[in-house]
Design a protein around this nucleic acid. Structure first.
Lengths: 228, 228
DNA sequence: GTGGCTCAGTGGCTGAGCCACTCAACCAAG
DNA sequence: CTTGGTTGAGTGGCTCAGCCACTGAGCCAC
C-alpha cells in the first residue's frame, strides 16, 4: 500500500478559491477582498488564507502587493504549465488539448531518445517494459507505463524533457482513475509499447517518432472513449 | 514604469532552503529537521517557515506529512517544469537544456500555428511584430519579442502550448538581463522575426517549422555568447 | 503473537497583534 | 494654480504563543 493524501483545510480552501477564480467570480484584473474580510467570509484565519494564497500566487493565479491588495491574474497570460492539474479539475475539456501536446512532445522525446540513449538506458527501458507486462492490476499497469515514459524522457539526455513529462503526467493525475482504459490488460499494454521501445533502442529516430505518435494516438483514443 | 519586486523574508527563506536542498545539504529522501528547530535555526517564526515550505511543497521539492515530518523529494522524479526558474538560478547549465527544448517546441508551435491561425491572429502577429521594431531599448525589444512568441503559441489554438511557453519564459526570466544580446538593436531583432511570422501567416507548416528553428538557433547562439 | 493504550514528537491551524507599505486626501509654501 | 510634504486609513507581511490532530514506537494485558 502507499500512504496518501490528507485533505487539509488549506487544500480545501485553495480548491475553493481556485474554483471561484476560474469560474469568473473573481475576474482577472480585479482585486480580491482584503485578506481579513475574505478570511472571515471563508470562516478561516488570515494565516490559513495566506497559505492558500501562497500556492495560488506561485501558480500564477494571484499577485499580492504589500499595502495594496491581492489581484487576480489572467492565467492564460501569466500562468505556467503547473496550472494544468487545477485547470483539468475545473474543466475536463483541457484533457484534449493536453493529449495533443503530449502526442507531439512524446514523439519529439522518442526521436531524441533514439538518437541519444545510452546502453544502460536501453537496458533500463527493457526492464521497465517488462514491468508493464508483469503489473498486477490496471492501476499498476498505468503506473508502470508512466515509468517507461519517464525513462524515455531521461534517455533524451535533456533533463528538461523529464520535468516536462512530469508536468504533463501531473496534469491528468487528478483524473487518472477515469483514464485506465488502455491499461486494463497488462499483456495488451505491453504489446502496444514494444514497437516504441524497439525503435528507440534501435536508434532509428524517424521510426521512434512514428511509433510514439501511433502509441500516443492509440492510448489517447481509448482514454477518451473511457471518459464518454 | 512597472512596479516590481519586493524581496520579502519568505522569498529569502525560500531561496535559502532551496539552495540547501539543491546543493545536497538536505539529500533527497531524507527528512528535514522539525519545523520548530529549523525555524529557530533560520531565525524566523514557524509560521514564516511554513509559508516557504508551502512553495517548495508545491514545486515538488518537499513533502510534509502530518505527525511525521518533512521529506526532501527527488526533484528529477517528482518535480515539474515550474521548478525550472529555481534550477536555473541554482545552476545556469540548465539554460542549455532549456534552449534545446524551446527550439524543438518552438518549431512545433510554429508549425501548428501555420496550420491553424485565424485571420485575426494573423493581424495580431503583424501588430506585435511591428511593436518589436518600434520598441525603445533592448529590454523593451526583448519583451516585445516574447509577446510575439506568446501570440504564436495562442495561434496554435491549443491553450496548453500557451502555458508551456509561459513556463519556458519564466525559466529564463530570472536571468533575462544576461540574455539581451539578440535584442540590442530593434531593427535587427525585427528582421530576424519576419521570416517566421511570414511563414506562419502564409500557412506553410514546413516553412514555419524551419523558420522557427532557424530563428531559435540564431537567438540562442547570441544569448549564449553573451553569457560566456 | 496480537491487539489496544500511552506518550513523545511532529505538522496543522488559530487568533491577536504589531509592523511596513501604498494611496489618496489634505494642506501649506512657492 | 502648482508643487511637495504630511497624515491617516486600509492593506498585506510577519511574529508569537498556544492548542489540536496525527504518527509511530514502546509497553502491556490478553
Amino acid at each position: 500500500m502507499e500512504a496518501l493524501p490528507r485533505e487539509t483545510i488549506v487544500d480545501v480552501l485553495e480548491e475553493r478559491l481556485r474554483e471561484d477564480i476560474l469560474a469568473g467570480r473573481h475576474p482577472a484584473g480585479s482585486y480580491l477582498p482584503p485578506e481579513r474580510r475574505l478570511a472571515d467570509g471563508y470562516g478561516v484565519t488570515r494565516t490559513t488564507l495566506k497559505h492558500a494564497f501562497g500556492r495560488l500566487v506561485q501558480a500564477g493565479l494571484l499577485e499580492t502587493r504589500h499595502g495594496v491588495g491581492t489581484k487576480v491574474l489572467d492565467y492564460a497570460r501569466q500562468g505556467g504549465a503547473d496550472l494544468l492539474p487545477m485547470l483539468v479539475r475545473h474543466d475536463p475539456k483541457w484533457l484534449h488539448e493536453i493529449f495533443e501536446v503530449r502526442r507531439s512532445i512524446g514523439a519529439l522525446i522518442a526521436e531524441r531518445a533514439a538518437a541519444r540513449a545510452t546502453r544502460s538506458q536501453h537496458a533500463e527501458l527493457g526492464r521497465l517494459l517488462e514491468a508493464v507486462r508483469e503489473a498486477g492490476d490496471a492501476d499498476a499497469v498505468q503506473l508502470a507505463d508512466i515509468e517507461v515514459h519517464r525513462a524515455l524522457a531521461r534517455a533524451t539526455g535533456n533533463r528538461v524533457y523529464a520535468l516536462l513529462t512530469n508536468t504533463l503526467f501531473k496534469a491528468y493525475l487528478p483524473v487518472r482513475a477515469a483514464l485506465r482504459g488502455p491499461f486494463t490488460d497488462a499483456e495488451t499494454a505491453h504489446r502496444r509499447l514494444v514497437p516504441l521501445v524497439d525503435a528507440v533502442v534501435s536508434g532509428d529516430g524517424r521510426r521512434a517518432h512514428a511509433a510514439a505518435d501511433t502509441y500516443l494516438r492509440d492510448t489517447e483514443r481509448i482514454m477518451l472513449e473511457g471518459l464518454a
